[in-house]
Write a protein that binds this DNA or RNA. Structure first.
Lengths: 140, 140
DNA sequence: TTGCTAGTTCGCACGACTTGTTGATTAGCA
DNA sequence: TGCTAATCAACAAGTCGTGCGAACTAGCAA
C-alpha cells in the first residue's frame, strides 16, 4: 500500500479533496496487517477523531478500493474486511479466533477440471481455514 | 448428494420429522447444479407449495448443512448459496452473469508461504473468477 | 381411529452490515 | 476572500439471515 503522503497526492490527482478524516484513515491503514472491517477501523478512528462518522469510513474505504489502493476481502464472516496489501496474495483464517493472515501460493495459475468449457479466469482467490498456532496451543 | 429417499431415512434416524416442506426441498436440491440461494429455492418451492415460508427453507437448509448433506458456499455475492455436491471441490464464478460451476483441482494440498507459523489447515476454498464462454461470446 | 406431545412451520420483527439521501459545511482554487 | 462543487454526519432504508412465540402436525401409542 502507498504511504499516507502518496495517497494524499493520489487523491488530489484524481480530483478528490483531502480531508482530515481521509488522512486519518490513510494513516490507520498504512502498514495495517490486521485486515480490519469498516467497523473496526471506525472505532479506532473515532478515538482519534470523535465525531467522525461510520458512513465516512465506509465511503473512504470504497474510494480506496475503487482506486485499487486496498483490497476488499469477503471471508464469509459477516463483515467485509479491508487489506492494504494489494499484492497477488491469499489468506489463511483461523476458524476459532478469526484472525486473518496474508500468504503467498506459488503454484498458481492452478489448473482445474470440470464441465466448464472456455472459461477465462481473471482471478483466483484461495482461503485456507483451520486453527492458528495460538488457538491450537490454548485448546491443548 | 443423497437421494430424497435417503434423506428422508437420514432425517428419521436423527429424530427429525419428515414434513412435506422438507421433502419438497429434498427434491428441489436433488441433482441441482445451479447453486441456488435460499431465496431462489424458496421461489421454486412456493410455486409447488404455496404457503411455504422462506423461514422454513432457511431452516431446512441449515439442517442439511449441519448434517453435511449440502455445502454452504459464500462467494461474496451477497447471499449464501447451497451446493448439493459435497465432494471436495471448488468453484468458478462468471463475474458477468454470476453463474457458478463446480470444478476439481488436483494440486491440493497447496503449500503457502508467509508469516504464519504452526497453522493447521482444515480446509481450502478456491474460487476462480472470470468470464464464462457464454458471456465472452455475447460481448465479442 | 383418536388423542397426545414434541418437534415444525410460519410470520413478524429484529440484528448486522452496508448504502442512499439530504441539508449544512468545507476544501480547493482563482 | 469568495465561489462552487464535493464532503460530512445523521437519518433511514435495503438486504440477508435468525430469534421468537403461537398455531399446527408428524409420529406414535392405545
Amino acid at each position: 500500500m502507498k504511504t499516507p503522503e502518496e495517497l494524499v497526492a493520489r487523491f488530489r490527482e484524481e480530483g478528490y479533496k483531502v480531508t482530515p478524516q481521509r488522512q486519518l484513515i490513510f494513516r490507520l491503514l498504512n502498514g495495517n496487517t490486521a485486515h480490519p472491517t469498516a467497523e473496526t477501523l471506525y472505532e479506532v478512528a473515532a478515538e482519534q477523531m470523535p465525531g467522525i462518522s461510520l458512513r465516512t469510513v465506509y465511503q473512504t474505504l470504497s474510494e480506496l478500493s475503487a482506486m485499487g489502493e486496498v483490497q476488499h476481502i469477503d471471508l464469509g464472516s459477516g463483515a467485509v474486511r479491508f487489506d492494504p496489501n494489494v499484492d497477488d496474495h491469499h489468506h489463511v483464517v483461523c476458524s476459532t479466533c478469526g484472525v486473518v493472515h496474508d500468504v503467498y501460493v506459488n503454484q498458481t495459475p492452478l489448473q482445474f477440471e470440470g464441465d466448464v468449457e472456455g472459461f477465462a479466469v481473471h482471478s483466483t482467490r484461495i482461503v485456507f481455514s483451520g486453527e492458528c498456532a495460538q488457538c491450537a496451543h490454548l485448546s491443548a
